[in-house]
């Protein structure tokens, strides 16, 4: 982190600087270009003419996590994909935010089974949850504005320590299975 970590926690210089920084951050949240399942189609739709995410300064979907501020987890997270998502999140530079789009990313949705992680918040921290299966583009835009409101209230020091994530997921209980013969 840069010089802002050396600023006092309050005071007129810090708060004014915070306002300026937050204002610029909230109006150019660049999402990571990355979709998982059905919700991703609605995410793309949000980027097209009728819904036009550009009105909120977020039309620049970046393919590289290094250039992205926002990860929209649009779809269900499988056990195989979970470590990839975690790695992508860790590769994003601070400050970074996460929107869990849809019930799958929020809580597993209709897929309460062996294959799907029951909510992406089991592996990375989430800022805004969007209900719906899939959420309409309007809902995603609303989530974006909520995130903007959140950013407005942030402090520079909030982003000093990199966020730690931990991996974990539920698997079916296989301990009571009889051993396979000959295996």
């Amino acid at each position: 982190m840069g010089f802002e970590s050396k600023l006092p926690e309050t005071g007129v210089i810090t708060t004014t600087l915070e306002q300026v920084v937050n204002w610029s951050r909230k109006n150019s949240i660049w999402p990571l270009l990355f979709g998982l399942a059905c919700c991703a189609i609605e995410m793309i739709t949000t980027g097209t003419a009728r819904h036009d995410i550009a009105r909120f300064g977020s039309e620049l979907f970046r393919a590289s996590p290094r250039q992205a501020d926002l990860m929209i987890v649009a779809g269900r997270v499988s056990n195989k994909m979970a470590p990839v998502i975690k790695r992508l999140y860790d590769e994003m530079a601070e400050p970074k935010w996460v929107i869990a789009m849809g019930i799958c990313a929020s809580a597993g949705g209709p897929f309460n089974n062996y294959a799907i992680v029951q909510g992406v918040d089991k592996i990375i921290p989430v800022d805004v949850y969007v209900p719906g299966c899939p959420p309409r583009p309007e809902a995603l835009l609303y989530a974006l504005t909520m995130l903007q409101k959140k950013i407005e209230t942030e402090h520079l020091r909030d982003h000093n320590a990199p966020k730690q994530t931990e991996l974990g997921v539920l698997l079916p209980d296989t301990s009571d299975l009889p051993p396979l013969p000959g295996a």
Partner: peptide, 8 residues
């Protein structure tokens, strides 16, 4: 068939 569905 002897594998459970899994999940929470």
């Amino acid at each position: 068939k002897d594998m459970p569905l899994g999940g929470e």
